[in-house]
Amino acid sequence: MPLVYDDLRRLAHHYISRERPGHTLQTTALVNEAYLRLVNQKNVHWENRAQFFGLAAKLMRHILIDHARSLAYAKRGGGARKVSLDEAAILSSEQAADLIALDDALEKLAREFPRKCRIVELRYFGGMTVEEAAEVLQVSPVTVMRDWNVAKAWLHRELSHGS
């Protein structure tokens, strides 16, 4: 995991610094490139792309939620961690709160429908298309779509009735 993180981190940086105004970030290209670079390294064995993408999506979720939680924590006055201007621009406190709620709901979803949770992770946090997610999970794209529909509804319901 640390190896992946380092490379992803460096690549993200690479992409951001080359970004031109008005161009949307091609984040799946980022993950693609990370995969290729890792595969070229001798000491890392990735059985398949799918495994890697799954991991990358998980990582993205982890990073984002981690950040959201620490933002919320800081806001409540806990800890002396200062939020830099850049960080503040990434997530507003409202977005952070929403993400935390979503994360909690996802944990619940995982207990009932683990595959649906994975799909949300891959698509929402990993930015994958239906086809890409289908490849990672080794199911048909139709299954991915159907799972996605139900998962979305489930999460929306959970968040609307949330505590």
Partner: peptide, 8 residues
């Protein structure tokens, strides 16, 4: 997808 935020 929130991936852009995560990448940033």
């Amino acid at each position: 997808p929130v991936m852009e935020a995560a990448t940033r």
